[in-house]
């Protein structure tokens, strides 16, 4: 183990390497050691994987718990308690991953805002799912494929949560077609197509729960994360708009994400956004934006991003 063999790095060195904080000769020595020492490598691999699991478990899951067990008392008290708890959780999560007060690179996950919206079945008729622009995104345009995949994965979650097997299956097949076209993901294509053939909603949900984390991880490795997230966010904005509520836009994480996306444009070598996408994002930052505008902006963003 790390402290039993003289030449083994300390646990702090392993943690620093896991966080990408080592450099120079020290980093080289740790790499050489890890390539040789199975014990240290196991500690290191478990550290990386546990860190990933911790990140995946941050704020969203807890927000859902808060909603399930509201504080007793009147509406204002409940709101205040909920806000205070949410702020505490977000602060804690921010501290945990060292990004407190900084822009964030991904939008809130569907699990965070779905809990604040009407039941999923009411959202299903509004799902986009690539049907508007279907057929418009071919020829290996990876940013367009990425954005469409991001939106499809949001739709898939809503449809699965609503028990709408046929709609979820359609999104799965479309996502599989994009993965297939991009190549290198044969297993995931097969898994999506297999799950699309499931006819029972509980079984489909269970199989999606088992498959999605790893498939999404691979999708993020192979597609463009920036556009995956932006496509997902556009679809989230649309759906939240159809509910007539603007909680998603008021969330601190959303604001920080929009700020981060817009900041990418200004950076040298950063992402070049279409003017209509930038304008849409700036409009979403305004407090007076209406739910109907939200729907229009989300739809317009998807149309531009996926072409």
């Amino acid at each position: 183990m790390a402290n039993e063999i003289k030449a083994c790095p300390t646990l702090e060195q392993l943690a620093a390497f896991a966080e990408g904080r080592l450099s120079g000769a020290e980093r080289d020595q740790v790499v050489v050691h890890l390539a040789e020492c199975a014990d240290c490598r196991e500690v290191f691999a478990e550290t990386l994987q546990t860190t990933d699991a911790l990140r995946a478990e941050e704020a969203p899951a807890r927000v859902v718990e808060l909603r399930r067990a509201p504080a007793p008392g009147g509406g204002r008290l409940r709101l205040a308690a909920s806000l205070a708890a949410t702020v505490a959780v977000l602060l804690a999560a921010g501290w945990m991953i060292g990004e407190q007060g900084r822009p964030v690179r991904s939008p809130p996950s569907p699990e965070a805002w779905l809990a604040e919206l009407p039941p999923a079945p009411q959202l299903v008729p509004w799902l986009w799912g690539g049907t508007v622009m279907r057929g418009g995104n071919h020829g290996g345009q990876s940013s367009g494929q990425s954005a469409e995949l991001g939106a499809l994965l949001v739709d898939l979650r809503v449809a699965a949560r609503a028990g709408e097997v046929a709609i979820a299956a359609e999104r799965l097949r479309r996502a599989a077609a994009i993965l297939d076209e991009a190549g290198l993901m044969d297993e995931d294509v097969a898994a999506f197509r297999r799950i699309a053939g499931v006819t029972d909603s509980a079984t489909m949900r269970r199989e999606l729960n088992a498959a999605l984390p790893t498939v999404e991880e691979r999708i993020h490795e192979r597609f463009e994360s920036f556009y995956l997230d932006l496509g997902a966010f556009a679809e989230e904005v649309r759906l939240a708009g159809t509910s007539g509520r603007r909680g998603l836009l008021d969330a601190r994480r959303t604001k920080r994400y929009v700020e981060w996306v817009l900041a990418q444009e200004r950076q040298e070598g950063g992402q070049a956004l279409s003017p209509s996408v930038s304008q849409g994002l700036r409009r979403l930052q305004q407090p007076e934006v209406t739910p109907a505008e939200q729907v229009d902006i989300g739809t317009s963003m998807l149309r531009v991003l996926t072409f």
Binding site: L11, A15, A18, V43, E46, T47, T50, T51, M96, I97
Partner: peptide, 23 residues
Amino acid sequence: RAFSGRCTLAGYLTAVIQHAYLD
């Protein structure tokens, strides 16, 4: 006491706890 701040405390504790688990 051995923690000197070269990584986040969360990262350090994660490595310590993984090492403790394998032990």
